[in-house]
Amino acid sequence: MSELIVEHLEVRYGDLVGVSDISLRVHAGSVVALLGSNGAGKTTTLNAVAGLVRPSSGRIVWQGEAISRLPAYRIVGKGLALSPEGWRLFVTQTVEQNLRLGASSLADRGRTAALFDRVYALFPRLAERRRQLAGTLSGGERQMLAVGRALMSEPTLLMLDEPSLGLAPAIVEQLYETLHRLHGEGLTLLLAEQSVPLALDIADYAFVLQTGRVALDGAAADLRENERVQQIYLGLGESKAVI
């Protein structure tokens, strides 16, 4: 079973706390949202799962295997991919070169052509821009490229960090339609979002983070009606340095 389990995750940057106690589960085929205001710990949690930061304590288990100490390239090879906040593209390389880098972890390089076809079918704009430098793309096109690059590793679980941030409403709508389509094809999604309505519309289950901890969790349908979600989202309560 392709299940992700995070237990009592703590991440520190010297004396600064990234997250202090995060526990969550992502079941195969589900969409799980991490909600919370800026600084609640969403990005740090995703980065820890992706192997980009090392947990100070706690466990991260994927498909029954502890991955907390594995480097990022090995975690990608096991079927987890992250589309990061801010895109982190190679701006002096073309769209196609960025996508090809996403496929570098594939055990079967013969799959690359089919994955290009899949990404270009999902994002026709990228096909039109395939020879264009990533640094010349619009914000919406860069977000498409970041998601497409993650998909080139053929993940079982796709993580997205603030996919709607800074994008025009029409682009956000297109992006979320694509995420719905990917989920319909069987891809498991874990996304961090500040936009509560967007996240709860697509998610099956959500965890609301506050000051580096899980303050509330439940089925997305239930959390839509929960007044505490808005209180936590607005950052009410005790303050603590988090990333």
Rank of each mutant, 00 (worst) to 15 (best):
E3T: 15
Y205A: 05
G39V: 12
G64V: 06
I5H: 04
N226R: 01
Y233F: 08
V229N: 02
V119Y: 09
L80T: 02
S20Q: 14
I67T: 04
E154A: 13
S56V: 04
L200C: 06
V172E: 01
A150V: 02
P169Q: 06
Q231K: 01
K78W: 13
A103C: 06
T94A: 11
V32G: 01
A40T: 04
G237N: 12
A81G: 15
Q93V: 12
L52N: 09
M144D: 04
R149F: 12
Q174N: 11
S20E: 14
T156K: 04
E7D: 09
F123E: 08
V95Y: 06
R59P: 15
L182A: 03
H183F: 12
G39Q: 06
A127T: 01
H27W: 11
S105V: 15
V49Y: 10
I75C: 06
L52A: 09
A48C: 09
V242Q: 02
T188Q: 10
Q97N: 04
P155I: 12
R111F: 14
P163R: 01
V49A: 09
G184C: 12
L16M: 08
G218C: 07
V147Q: 00
G110W: 11
L236I: 12
E96P: 05
A146W: 04
R224K: 15
Q63H: 05
D108L: 11
L190P: 03
L46M: 14
A40S: 14
L122E: 08
L190K: 02
I67E: 03
E162I: 01
L198A: 05
A66D: 15
R181I: 05
A114G: 05
T178K: 03
Q194I: 14
S104P: 07
D201T: 12
L9W: 00
G79R: 00
S37Q: 05
R109N: 08
L209G: 00
D201L: 03
L151T: 06
W87H: 10
L46F: 09
Q63M: 07
L122I: 09
P124H: 03
E65H: 10
R118F: 13
R74H: 14
S153D: 12
G166S: 13
G184L: 13
M144H: 01
E227S: 11
G14M: 08
Q97K: 06
L106C: 06
E7R: 08
G140M: 06
R130I: 12
Q93R: 10
E3V: 15
A203T: 03
Q194T: 10
I67D: 06
M159Y: 07
S83G: 06
A113N: 00
L52G: 10
V49P: 06
